[in-house]
């Protein structure tokens, strides 16, 4: 019988992220379906608070690797911690959230203990007594259901696929595990570079993804481009709705060709084939063009609407719920006026 180990790193305040709580639901559900024991393994400067918050999750034991060394999100310490937690529990399946911190180490930790991994899975369930995961291939163009015989099997779960664990808190007993760090630690995390509140346009937890296409910077009916106004409209809209911004590759690339583009855009905004595929309940695409390969950017968006001048727009036809054939400048100006 596979023991299932849920692993997570704590946030700066000692809590667990929403993504980790979602992964806990995934681990707990799988354990219940397989009738397998569940253990929890936590990594952080201090893990007791996080352990207490999971007290009601039904884990048979909670293990922790803690101390100042483990406060920083870095490979050397995090990989050592995961390997030690695995060693302490002898789990067959290790499940964590596909956060940047966990994604940095999970496959490596699996390799260190002679295991295998599958990352960013979007579904995880028992089927015929076996754990089966779903994950996407070729930049979200196709998905596979798969299982593995090899153990240990490390799995990271994409955010937004499971409900976050919301069980009662309590008092948990944490078994401290010490982690051996081979070769010592040569990396220091010196800080975070975060966009300021006004510049913050990527919001993974936002209810809405606003996708701005290259059309925003093209010549408009009066024969001139209005990138300045486009910027203003987009930023005001994002501030009012607290939405997250995504862009097309063509818009990001335009900056490389010296064209007038939106100043706040970076490659991190890019969604689609060579960008990200974020998960949001709603998506509004404006001035986007392109076919299937580019449209994967909103593969994981719930309700989708698009504003485009072209009624045959590949982004919209068959991909959006509603397509408004209209000038995005006019529509969004009006939307801004109507929004509180």
């Amino acid at each position: 019988m596979d023991k299932i180990l849920f692993v997570a790193q704590t946030e700066c305040d000692g809590s667990l992220s929403k993504a980790s709580l979602e992964a806990l639901t995934a681990a707990k559900t799988l354990a219940e379906q397989l009738g397998a024991p569940l253990a929890v393994g936590l990594v952080g400067e201090a893990v007791q608070a996080a352990a207490d918050s999971l007290a009601g999750c039904g884990a048979e034991a909670v293990y922790g690797v803690s101390g100042p060394d483990f406060a920083q999100p870095r490979y050397a310490t995090d990989a050592a911690a995961l390997a030690a937690l695995f060693g302490a529990t002898g789990a067959g399946i290790v499940i964590g959230a596909a956060t940047p911190r966990m994604s940095r180490v999970l496959p490596g930790a699996a390799a260190r203990v002679g295991g295998v991994s599958d990352t960013s899975v979007t579904a995880l369930a028992a089927s015929g007594g076996k754990p089966v995961v779903t994950r996407w291939y070729y930049r979200q163009r196709m998905y596979a259901e798969l299982t593995r015989k090899e153990r240990p099997w490390f799995v990271s779960v994409s955010s937004g696929c499971f409900a976050a664990y919301a069980g009662a808190a309590g008092s948990a007993s944490v078994t401290a595990v010490s982690a051996e760090i081979p070769g010592g630690v040569r990396t220091q995390v010196t800080g975070m570079i975060c966009p300021s509140a006004e510049e913050q346009t990527i919001r993974p937890d936002a209810a809405l993804l606003f996708v701005a296409g290259a059309g925003w910077t093209k010549k408009q009916a009066d024969g001139a481009a209005h990138a300045g106004e486009a910027e203003e409209i987009i930023l005001s809209f994002l501030n009012k709705t607290q939405g997250s911004l995504g862009t097309s590759k063509s818009l990001v690339d335009l900056s490389g060709e010296g064209q007038q583009v939106l100043s706040f855009l970076s490659h991190m905004h890019q969604v689609g084939q060579t960008g990200s595929t974020p998960r949001h309940p709603k998506g509004l695409a404006t001035c986007c063009h392109g076919e299937e390969p580019h449209v994967v950017g909103w593969r994981f968006i719930g309700e989708r609407r698009a504003v485009n001048l072209d009624p045959n727009c590949g982004w919209a036809q068959g991909k959006a719920d509603v397509l408004y054939v209209a000038d995005a400048f006019e529509v969004m100006r009006k939307v801004l006026a109507l929004l509180p």
């Binding site: 089927s127 163009r141 596979a144 593969r299 991909k319 959006a320």
Partner: peptide, 28 residues
């Protein structure tokens, strides 16, 4: 891995196309 299947997502959405509608109505 042992793949039990690989598929292309087939969900095609029924797109409601709103054409020739006033901007005010679309915005609302």
């Amino acid at each position: 891995p042992e793949y039990s299947g690989v598929q292309i997502p087939s969900q095609k959405r029924e797109t409601r196309v709103v054409k020739d509608a006033p901007v005010d109505q679309i915005a609302k």
